[in-house]
Amino acid sequence: MTRGLVFNIQRYSIHDGTGIRTIVFLKGCPLKCPWCSNPESQGPVRPSVWMKDGAEEPLGKWMSVDEVLHEVEKDEIFYRTSNGGVTLSGGEVLMQADFAAELLKEVKALGISTAIETTGALPLKQIRKVLPYTDQVLFDLKIMDPDKARQIIGEKISTIKQNFEEALNSPAHVIPRIPLIPGYTTPPENLRQIRDYVTGLGIKEIHILPFHQYGSGKYEYLKRSYRLKDTPLLKQEEVNTVKAFFESAQIKTVVSGLE
């Protein structure tokens, strides 16, 4: 049986897709976003450790589809009343596409809503495995300039776009999610490129996620430096300006996943 490397299962998540959801975080990600708030998931699909409160703590646990199902079924009653369900996140879900597809298939078979949160940074054949079982795709769009994207986060924009368009052509509902990272994704030129791209594809709704510092403690556990540790949070007006910018193109813009 396929096994997946899971580094966290978080219940009662209300910001990541419809209704009340459980998020299964899969370990491993090919990107190196400097603002990543799950830095423990970066790198290959391989268990690792960090030091927390002076003690070594393992990161990542190999689990079978049944084991994960058993965990996510615990909140079934909440999915039923809220049209919620299971979201696979990461890391990058597509790094473990076979496992993800099998899990999503089982969840969907129970009539529970499925979602993935992805960067779309892997070859097309990966996303094609999961899309048939996915109701909602929360798709990260970050830096659109090909050179900067390659240098800063290590992604190839052409791949991202291919994946994005593949998702759009599937029955899944696709919502672009834009992390607002000061100096990285927020320059007006970048936001304009994102807007042009999505409007060209007929997108009607996006989510913007203002920068936060929630991940910074994790860098300490990992004994890694955190480049954004002194980056200030966005002011409410700055967030509003971005929101207005997208809305001026008739795109419904939801801040942080809650309307």
């Binding site: 966290n8 009662y12 910001h15 799950n38 510092q213 991940g215 403690g217 942080s256």
Partner: peptide, 22 residues
Amino acid sequence: LIVRVAGYSAFFVDLNKKIQDD
């Protein structure tokens, strides 16, 4: 105590003081 996050595992007590202050 879970604090408001979008897709990230953050409990309030896991955050450092500066962020908690925020």
